[in-house]
Design a protein around this nucleic acid. Sequence first.
RNA 1: UGGGGUAUCGCCAAGCGGUAAGGCACUAGUUUUUGGUACUGGUAUUCGGGGGUUCGAAUCCCUCUACCCCAUCCA
Length: 752
Amino acid sequence: MNKSKDFLRRKVEEDLKAGKYQEIITRFPPEPNGFPHIGHAKSISINFGIARDYQGRCNLRMDDTNPTTEDTQYVEALKDAVQWLGFEWDKDVHYTSDYFFKLYAYAKELISMGKAYVDSLPEEQMREYRGTVTQAGKRSKYAQRSVEENLELLEQMKNGKFQEGEHVLRAKIDMASPNMKMRDPLLYRIKHSHHFRAGDEWSIYPMYDFAHCLSDYLEGVTHSICTLEFENNREIYDWVLDTLKLEPPRPYQYEFARLNINYTVMSKRKLLELVEKKLVNGWDDPRLPTIAGLRRRGYTPESILNFCEQIGVAKANSVVDVAQLEFSIRSDLNPKVPRVMCVLDPLKVTIGNYDGKEELEASYYPHDVPKEGSRRLPFSKEIYIERDDFMENPTKGYFRLTPTQPVRLKHAYIICCKEIIKDEHGNIVEIKAEYYPDSKSGEDTSGIKVKSAIQWVEANEAKEIEVRLYDRLYINESPQNIDDLNPNSLKIVKNALIEPAVITQKPDVRFQFEREGYFFADPVDYTDKKPVFNKIVALKEASSQKKKTPQNRQKQEPKKVQIDGEVTPMTKEEEAKFEKYINELKLNPEVANTLARDKQLSSFYEEALESLFTPVGIANIVTNDIARELKQKDISALKYTPKQVAKLIEMVDNEIISTKIAKQVFEEMSKSGEEPRQIVDSKGLIQISDPSVLLPIIEEIIVKNPDNVEKYRAGNNKLFGFFVGQVLKATKGKGNPKVVNSLIEDRLNIIN
RNA sequence: UGGGGUAUCGCCAAGCGGUAAGGCACUAGUUUUUGGUACUGGUAUUCGGGGGUUCGAAUCCCUCUACCCCAUCCA
């Protein structure tokens, strides 16, 4: 299927290959304080999916560290969601509250190490002390407390000796850290609430940042996957595990972008508001993106899993088009469910020349769905068709019944309109029609060609049903608040008519109502007396059908002109260097600029120049490759000297190696610190410039790729790079690219 | 404003110095007793902008821009 791996799976594979872990263990760790939605499904799909793909395990862990918001009903909903999606968690459900004692022991250990303290600053003051994003904070005076005092205080906190807010336990890290999360984060706070599992045993509860990493560690989790907003928390995650010097292997945290879908909301807060203000009918309202809602709407687990796979996993904040979700349910249902006929807005048709009644055999599945099954359709002179399927004054391109255009009744006869009956307001109330006796479905000898076949039901045998038609919940693509709600998101049709077999035979719970869409027997409100169906999704509409052409998107808006911001001016010293570089050393201003502005770079550069005076060549490697290294590590950590770099450039200048190989040698050198010449010799990297060696290789590649040669000669110049690339690949990068280029050019321009 | 992230088609998303994958959406055609499905085509001379390095850059360097996250005793 998708042969490209996402960044998480790539990381897992890398770790497995490196032998970092014996087995992959992931976890899905929701806080049981709300109902799961399709965003949870994405996380479930990732965590359980990775475990499955790499023969690992995935835990389901309730992150229940805040007793005031959590409840067992959510635990059940969460478990249910995972199971419904078809996953099995490893062993029993885990709870962070299971680890309260262990976590407490770790906390005492941190205190003993002098890495944590009980702070007693009032909440407001603590906030002030934290500083701001631009200003460093300052540490509380309570950070001075002795280990013994801290231990004593924590014990008392645990035993409920204090009021909420009186004390907290904090990690002693760095009140001046540029990462706000690292300014002595809270580890424990006092809460006298009743915990739904731990009861009243604890008066202190661990904070996320303390509990999560350790819970992962205790469970042997290898890859702790969470959403982007925890990026800043990763540093604490690492700090806690590293500071406690836990026995390896330890877990590492990775973040992905949470799911957003247009025309709906995903945040707990907004979902809750909809339910509480009764703007929807509970958490399982089929318009909601909750698992319960989707499920009641009729979405299948497969369709949701497919959706999650389709949209992929990445780190860019994005909004997925609902059309993608709709596609996933349609394509899941299309080959599975029976087709039946239902009329939502009935228009009576009386077939004047038909007498009596009969039953027609009709397959549940169309010719392209390889499934068996059929039912009998009662037929008589009185039937109903969809009001939309008749037009007195048809628009151009209308395929269905008109005063002059016949239409086929699906599985039955072709009819034509003879008379239109209207009421006193001019509304059409009935069509008088006639049928063609020799046009019966399957044995049609009439020779009449119709443009369309429409659904219908027999008047006396049809069953009345309620149909709930759902549309997108919001009118806006990115809804802000309840003003953006779609007033027509739910339309209830009380008296729709459906063929009897659906009710009496009950061949399935999901159906395609022919030409309408996919529908699901509502699992809550459906009774034999009053059947209720939910519309899952409409059929895809052909373009000519579309009411509102989503106005052909204004093609290419004039490209926005980006205005460059101001560049911070150089200092005098930098300016002097810059002048020297361009004037004396003849460097390109751009290169000179980067060099002059970076002290480490320029000093490295100048030192290298002392061993070999090739100002331009050395400048290039310093500003490009060495600059890259310096982003990762300090200059003192470099394994090579300026002199070695000079040696490398010397080889390029003397055409012993190509610039391409130089990159390779550089990489090797930065890993091992070996002398460049030695690397070149031991690996045999000297470049090949001899045409007599190169030519046969080129010839072979040209013979192997006749179609590309063709395309190139037809004017596809991009392909030139392809040939160069192939030759270089064949020579393991050693071909002299300049020579290769000119040889290929010559060769390709010879017409055979 | 300090720090951490992200930017590739209308929407997702591969790509990791050598021919810009794929899906959705859109579009044209074929098949069709669903204006459905299926099938066959068409859709990025270009990767947020500008420079630089290189024989060759979406990929490396510099710089600018836009958006997201962080100052809960929430997770």
